[in-house]
Design a protein around this nucleic acid. Structure first.
Lengths: 250, 250
DNA sequence: CGAAGGCTTGATAGACCTCAAACACAGTGG
DNA sequence: CCACTGTGTTTGAGGTCTATCAAGCCTTCG
């Protein structure tokens, strides 16, 4: 993934992401780079698509950070996934006409919209792109499964260690983390909404993780002081991310 | 879906299932009916594929009941989905080489194995089949999302009411439930493992649901005495199942 | 009929929640 | 430059939902 043209930084993000999970031919890469898309800037905490919508385009996250979430009847929020630049968080809308959840930004972000028809055409013409996109949605589901185990069966301590591991690995895969440190784009409340915990409890467990020497967390900067230990504490095994070899752990 | 040939009951299950979520041309139906597959009978609580495996075939559930699950380090089990006849629970193995979870039966079942190559060939030749299968895996993910909300943010009472609703609707979609009653193929322990609850607590909440006149449960027979009320109690909205119109609620 | 699995019940404990308030820090505006 | 505001973090004190442990009971089925 060395020399991507710098003409379309938003497309390069996408290529980098796809190449972290699948192989593309040169022709397929060119086709992706040529996709028509319209850019849009958004502030923090803005919805991109809402539960109940019937979108006719998919959203590529170019910069920033986003999440998918649902609200319960009593107004509680469950975040179901975090998304980083290069992700197409609502790719599923290609075949599921009604949104069964919402997609929103967590920090100021830029997104690119690509019409369903363009994507259809691409997948019809290039089986490799279809396979890569399908695989992407399958990995999505794999992450849901992993989170479900955490929320259902693991302690708050383990769960929090686990997301921190996941975020670090995923940031590394797109070059947004050095070694074992990264800028966390999420608040403690958002971590709570993702893991089914209260903000207060997240805060206390975070202190415990610090006390155990696993992490330091100053401002938004997360450092895994003991990467090995953090993985063990979080029962973290990156297999479920289905990254191509190199990108994985270490 | 009136007159399916009775020559291959295992294939008809599949067609019925696919037709509950997508449209198939006559030619595509014939292609599915012609797929080579090998049948196998299994007892209760037997694994079909295991975490870590690299399967070269997919499994079609013909009769019985199955679930996908993971075990935590301490040996706790999280069930991530239930599967009914017609489902292909490990379709994701088509593009994710390593299993990140296990698939097992809950009652004596028959399954049919279809090689990945056969499915590849079919999806390459028939875009409609590819779309239907892709859509199936996307619905899978939609169910994961819904469960995540339940486990993370809803009370045990709501969660249990919710699964009961889901099971009833899905059984109805394949003709295995009359009105608002069905044979539950799961134990209370399994419901607990699916919802992140202990067996004891499942039992107590079930009694509460009975006490509130929402259900009766004698042996394995579940009756939703108050279907409306049960849906409200479970905050159940079948949209996330993405069934084609007719099959949905009522 | 006996065994085995599943269901039910009671008592106790603990993980995590809720409420409430104080603190820290960054950005805004006078 | 310094109050002023707003978000996010931290701390304290209960409270509760759900887990765990331990029996007893009921079906089902060989």
């Amino acid at each position: 993934m060395a020399e991507l043209t710098n003409l379309h930084p938003e497309r390069n993000q996408l290529i980098r992401k796809i190449e972290s999970i699948a192989d593309l031919s040169e022709e397929e890469k060119q086709a992706l780079l040529a996709m028509p898309m319209t850019l849009k800037k958004l502030g923090a905490d803005e919805d991109i698509v809402r539960d109940g919508d019937r979108p006719s385009e998919c959203c590529l996250l170019v910069t920033g950070f986003a999440c998918r979430y649902k609200l319960t009847a009593e107004g509680k929020r469950q975040i179901m996934s975090f998304h980083i630049p290069g992700d197409i968080p609502d790719l599923q809308s290609l075949f599921l006409d009604v949104m069964d959840h919402s997609l929103g930004t967590l920090v100021p972000s830029t997104v690119a919209f690509i019409s369903h028809e363009v994507i259809y055409a691409l997948t019809r013409r290039y089986p490799g792109i279809a396979a890569a996109f399908w695989r992407d949605t399958l990995i999505d589901a794999a992450v849901f499964r992993e989170w479900m185990v955490g929320i259902g069966r693991r302690s708050a301590y383990t769960r929090i260690a686990h997301v921190l591991c996941e975020l670090l690995v995923r940031f590394r895969a797109i070059g947004m983390a050095n070694d074992h440190s990264a800028e966390l784009p999420v608040t403690q409340a958002e971590i709570g909404d993702a893991l089914g915990l209260s903000t207060v409890h997240v805060n206390r467990v975070l202190q415990e993780l610090r006390g155990d020497g696993l992490i330091t967390l100053r401002g938004r900067t997360l450092v895994a002081n003991d990467w090995e230990g953090l993985q063990i504490a979080g029962e973290f095994d990156p297999t479920y991310l289905h990254l191509k070899k190199k990108q994985a752990a270490a």
